[in-house]
Design a protein around this nucleic acid. Structure first.
Length: 801
DNA sequence: TTAGCCTTGAGC
DNA sequence: GCTCAAGGCTAA
């Protein structure tokens, strides 16, 4: 029996949609209007919101007044798009949280996370929630309708605590060479970049009826509505929504430039909202679930029926991300290729959050070269391979074993979860989750899997209990998400909608919690409209691939790390020298950790691991609002031009510079953000048009941080430098923030696998057993790459090498 | 309302 | 038959 899903595609706007729950306390509330004609978000007192709904003229009048009031304001962050399907004569009204009137630090652990808080003029950096704008893609076939789908912005919860950052700054001064950056890197307690969701408008769509069961359980709740448009209210009092021009819609770079302006804040306003009177009879008004990317491409289309739902979120972009990742995985698998580098063992990081399911994979895909492919194919182990070597997919078996008797030994002793669960730091050596160098006769290299139980919920940091609604979450967030969606609950944040959500505070602000759920990738459509129990849904294959992907990524990274270890010698690198004491993890904890903690981020062309890291953001490499690379320029010779700074968000974030010193930035080349324009049923992907990337790359100046620049400049190997440049160019085009360590790992991986591939096919090695081959190879590699490793560790603030 | 545990059932 | 991600139940 097909499962039924909530369909977010077809929404109807009705007065009831705009009914909202008022805050429990008496506070000032405002209403955000999105005037699709004027491309503005306006805020008026909420008391008029309903009136506006029934009296458009009144609303229009108010809008005009508001516009007059705010016209003097410089255009702030421009992010969102309306849906072309929406009758633009309709003004959409939402009731955001009350405007703060008093100052109350609410994210430092006090018990009231929703106290009214004043809005700072320039919100400080928060590493709790970072708005990441998704990257658009250059697809000339994208229709306007597709392009006017929700703006694709994301929040990533990188979960670097303030203490983390402080520790990093202390122990890795090289990462914080700029005093300004250091200053910015230490966010004031209680600060937080708000999170805002882009939303879209939908028209009510005629429903398709589907036969289904369990209709008796439908909850026909016409009163409770989730006004996710609450989320769209910018932190700034006078945010302006701008419907991006057609030009910007079709050109991600121009879209970017249209979205950035001098008043960029860590929080952006959202776009249009959708409403649904929800007067639908669920039994009759079934809707065909929107065709997801996976449905179209991967043939996973379920004949799901859905009911309309009053809130529209950016879930489809998350779908797109995941699905794209799936596609990428599929393509890679079909090509016999895999990925280089990849994730590290998550359980190394006791405090890490859950892993992005596909993030690293994408980066690996970007890294892949032909020379890697053959090697990848040899390393591309499927689940059966892993199990053959003693690995078990603990996501499914919850059994963690080291294979082949290597590592820490025993059936469970070597997995990192054991060390993690014991409260102590992970073991060093082969049992610490890195590659187990035990080369069995089969040629497989034993790896130690990342236990699901060791991962943390990306929403609250609690223990993950499994895949729930699209990603690994804890049981409580699963239930919370389910209750919210099923019951169409309306939440209101009485603070700034950027409440910190963790295990201890997750109850305090359901609005922000749900917001976070959405932004980390929980999928609304995974909640069954018909409440049917049991069974599987369409995400099953995605979960499966995600697991396999993680295993593969982890494995490849471990191989690379093992190469480093073999080359340099593990005795020379002590974990304590490589990571903050607070984590006691080997290798570059900072980057690995951040990489792990960044949850699913939607992307079509960018790799998920391209999400800006907190370090990078703090370093000014990216604009957390826009995923933009701070527009320093790197030429092929490593030249940098840092132009004048302005009061852009980048500058406010300690950015190195901007591309314009006139204070009137257009960010013409700072093409970090564009809206990922999709619609539920018409998702446009450009995976088949690599030329567009190449074309743009050739004309696009390279923008990287000074640290990256220095790194590249330091390399004396021209070939290697060229490779780096190529990578930077690709990532720059793809709006990918270039993380230093990630970059180094990628290059290292690329070189490693290239050399492995080369060596494997040489007359000297090809007849050797795999195990023997690796031993000899790594010895050779150590000689060849020695200097490069030194460079890497030098830049990784490892001074003892 | 939350969150831990239980039941269910499609997919393998 | 097993897995596991859905929804349901219920004590707190």
């Amino acid at each position: 029996m097909p499962l039924n899903y909530i369909n977010f595609e077809h929404l109807q706007l009705s007065p009831s949609t705009f009914t909202t729950m008022r805050p429990s306390h008496d506070s000032v509330s405002t209403t955000t209007h999105i005037d699709m004609d004027q491309s503005r978000i306006l805020e008026v007192p909420s008391s008029s919101s309903i009136l506006n709904q029934y009296h458009p003229q009144h609303q229009q009048s108010q809008q005009q007044q508001q516009q007059q009031q705010i016209h003097h304001q410089p255009l702030p962050s421009i992010i969102n798009l309306g849906n072309s399907n929406v009758n633009r004569s309709n003004s959409i009204t939402s009731t955001p949280s009350p405007q703060p009137t008093t100052n109350n630090n609410n994210s430092s652990g006090n018990n009231n996370n929703c106290n009214v808080t004043s809005l700072p003029q320039s919100p400080p950096i928060s590493f709790q929630n970072i708005v990441v704008n998704d990257i658009s893609f250059n697809n000339p076939t994208t229709t306007e309708q597709q392009l006017t789908s929700p703006g694709h912005r994301f929040l990533i919860n990188n979960r670097l605590s303030h203490n983390d950052i402080a520790a990093i700054a202390t122990q890795h001064p090289n990462l914080f060479r700029s005093q300004q950056i250091q200053k910015e890197m230490l966010p004031p307690i209680g600060s937080g970049s708000g999170l805002e969701l882009s939303e879209m408008q939908h028209q009510h769509h005629h429903h398709q009826s589907h036969n289904h069961h369990h209709q008796q359980n439908h909850q026909k709740n016409n009163d409770l509505k989730i006004l996710q448009n609450d989320m769209i209210k910018p932190a700034n009092h006078h945010q302006v929504l701008q419907i991006t021009s057609d030009e910007s819609l079709t050109d991600p770079k121009k879209a970017l430039s249209s979205q950035m302006n001098d008043n960029c804040q860590p929080v952006f306003g959202g776009g249009g909202i959708s409403g649904n009177g929800n007067g639908n009879d669920d039994s009759d008004e079934r809707k065909k679930m929107s065709t997801s990317f996976e449905d179209n491409i991967l043939g996973l289309n379920d004949s799901a029926s859905c009911f309309s739902y009053p809130y529209i979120l950016d879930n489809e972009m998350i779908d797109a991300d995941t699905d794209t990742a799936d596609l990428a995985a599929t393509i890679a698998e079909n090509n016999g290729g895999g990925a280089s580098g990849g994730d590290c063992n998550k359980s190394l990081l006791e405090n890490s959050a859950s892993t992005s399911s596909s993030r690293n994979y994408h980066s690996l895909q970007n890294m892949r070269t032909d020379s890697i492919s053959s090697m990848d194919s040899s390393l591309d182990l499927d689940k059966s391979d892993l199990e053959k070597e003693g690995y078990q997919d603990n996501a499914s078996s919850h059994s963690h074993q080291s294979g082949s008797g290597g590592g820490g030994g025993g059936s469970n002793g070597s997995n990192l979860n054991s060390s993690s669960s014991s409260g102590g730091p992970p073991n060093n050596g082969s049992s610490n989750g890195m590659l187990n160098a035990n080369n069995s006769n089969s040629g497989y290299i034993t790896l130690i899997p990342p236990p699901v139980g060791g991962e943390l919920c990306p929403v609250c940091g609690d223990k993950v209990s499994g895949y729930h609604y699209g990603l690994l979450t804890c049981e409580s967030c699963k239930g919370f998400f389910k209750r919210t969606v099923q019951n169409k609950k309306v939440y209101t944040c009485v603070a700034e909608r950027n409440c910190h959500i963790d295990k201890t505070q997750r109850k305090r602000c359901p609005f922000c919690r749900f917001n976070k759920c959405i932004n980390v990738g929980m999928k609304l459509e995974a909640v069954r409209e018909d409440r049917m129990r049991g069974g599987r849904n369409k995400f099953g294959p995605m979960y499966k691939r995600d697991r396999a992907r993680k295993l593969q990524i982890m494995r490849q990274r471990q191989i690379a790390l093992q190469a480093i270890r073999t080359t340099i010698g593990s005795a020379d690198i002590k974990p304590g020298q490589l990571s903050p004491n607070s984590y006691q993890t080997p290798y570059n904890t900072i980057n690995i950790k951040q990489e792990i903690q960044i949850p699913q981020v939607s992307s079509l062309t960018q790799s998920p691991d391209s999400s800006p890291s907190p370090i990078a953001i703090a370093l000014g490499q990216v604009n957390p609002n826009t995923t933009s690379v701070i527009p320093t320029s790197l030429t092929g010779n490593g030249g940098v031009s840092t132009m004048g700074t302005t009061n852009t968000s980048a500058a406010s974030l300690g950015g190195i510079g901007s591309n314009s010193g006139n204070g009137n930035n257009t960010y013409e080349h700072d093409s970090s953000v564009s809206l990922q324009h999709t619609s539920n049923s018409k998702i446009c992907y450009d995976n088949t048009n690599p030329s567009s990337t190449a074309d743009s790359m050739s004309s696009e100046p390279l923008r990287v941080s000074p640290m990256i620049r220095d790194f590249v400049q330091t390399i004396d190997d021209r070939e290697w430098q060229a490779q780096l440049f190529d990578l930077l160019q690709k990532q720059s085009y793809n709006q990918v923030e270039v993380d230093l360590f990630e970059l180094m790992c990628k290059v290292l991986d690329q070189n490693l696998f290239s050399q492995v591939d080369w060596a494997r096919n040489t007359v000297f090695f090809k007849d050797l057993k795999v195990s023997t081959f690796f031993v000899l190879f790594f010895l050779t590699l150590g000689y060849t790459f020695g200097s490069k490793f030194l460079i890497i560790f030098k830049f990784g603030s490892v001074t003892s090498v």
